[in-house]
């Protein structure tokens, strides 16, 4: 999930475009990590030093690591350690953006350092998928600390993103949230969460995007059935909300249930309390996830 939010961060900082990210998520599948980006991320080399090694490599037939050691930037032990690390998704994204010429090594260095310090994230936070770190990231990205029911919203949004990665794909970029009281929807699925606390949750997108999202969840098998997209997106929302309810029940003792999903087409939906509309850009288009804690 850090890769997607790192992408969102780069987009918010206007360092990349949405198209750059879509392309990078596609190319990332074939990206091999280079030692330079790993060393920048670990704070062992600056972007200037990496550039220096890259330029030197053009006239000397030596590997990056050997040259970096010879030039005194890193030790052999540090190179071995970097090479033995499993590349993380956000680093692969960064490497792809550098490979695609979207970011220079210096821009990557600045961005990754700012990203870590703005979100108070350590390297070990970014290597795993600890709930605490993910929640911190989500709260910071969406400014949820200002919200009433901040904890519930953070838990919900974190769970939602985990399940988007699990059931749909990881090739998306989260955009900044909008706080809305009403929403004009062409296609929208709504499900209410009731119990210890109440919430309204929705998924909405343009027709073609909606259909593609449904296909990602269900596969091609059922796509000829009439009403396939509403049925499928509805079931996705139901599964996410169910997993959220179970999680809240197990961890916080909250007892939650849900109402059957409702399909809303071509009309306006209003919310009693401010709703967070969270746009997420996939390679096939934008899907909006809405949650309002009542």
């Amino acid at each position: 999930m850090f890769a997607q939010f790192f992408g969102g961060y780069l987009l918010n900082k206007k360092l990349v475009t949405s198209d750059d990210l879509t392309q990078a998520f596609e190319d990332k599948k074939h990206t091999r990590m280079r030692l330079g980006v790993l060393a920048i991320n670990a704070g062992l080399m600056t972007a200037d030093q990496v550039e220096h090694v890259n330029i030197t490599q053009q006239s000397v037939d030596k590997r990056f690591g050997d040259l970096a050691v010879e030039l005194g930037y890193v030790t052999e032990e540090q190179v071995d350690k970097l090479l033995s690390q499993q590349p993380t998704e956000y680093l692969l994204l960064g490497q792809t953006l550098v490979n695609n010429g979207v970011l220079t090594n210096a821009q990557f260095e600045q961005a990754i350092n700012d990203y870590k310090s703005d979100n108070e994230l350590t390297d070990s936070d970014l290597e795993g998928s600890k709930n605490e770190s993910l929640s911190k990231l989500v709260t910071e990205f969406y400014h949820l600390e200002e919200a009433v029911n901040a904890r519930m919203l953070t838990d919900y949004v974190t769970m939602m993103f985990k399940n988007i990665i699990r059931f749909i794909d990881g090739d998306f970029t989260p955009l900044e949230a909008m706080v809305v009281r009403e929403f004009d929807a062409e296609n929208l699925i709504e499900q209410r969460i009731t119990g210890t606390y109440d919430a309204v949750t929705c998924i909405t997108a343009d027709k073609d995007v909606y259909f593609e999202f449904a296909k990602r969840f269900a596969g091609e098998t059922f796509s000829d059935i009439t009403g396939f997209e509403n049925e499928t997106v509805g079931e996705f929302l139901n599964v996410v909300n169910g997993l959220f309810a179970v999680n809240q029940s197990n961890e916080g003792g909250a007892e939650l249930s849900m109402t059957p999903q409702k399909v809303i087409t071509g009309s306006k939906i209003t919310f009693e309390k401010p709703a967070y509309c969270i746009p997420v850009v996939f390679s096939f288009g934008e899907v909006d996830f809405i949650v309002s804690a009542e």
Binding site: L243, A245, S249, L256
Partner: peptide, 25 residues
């Protein structure tokens, strides 16, 4: 076979005579 396998739903279902409980997906 439900999306909401909360403690409350589990207990209610088992008390009512359910043979087992599966959490979606």
């Amino acid at each position: 076979a439900s999306s909401v396998g909360t403690q409350g739903h589990l207990k209610e279902a088992l008390r009512a005579g359910a043979a087992d409980f599966l959490q979606k997906p």
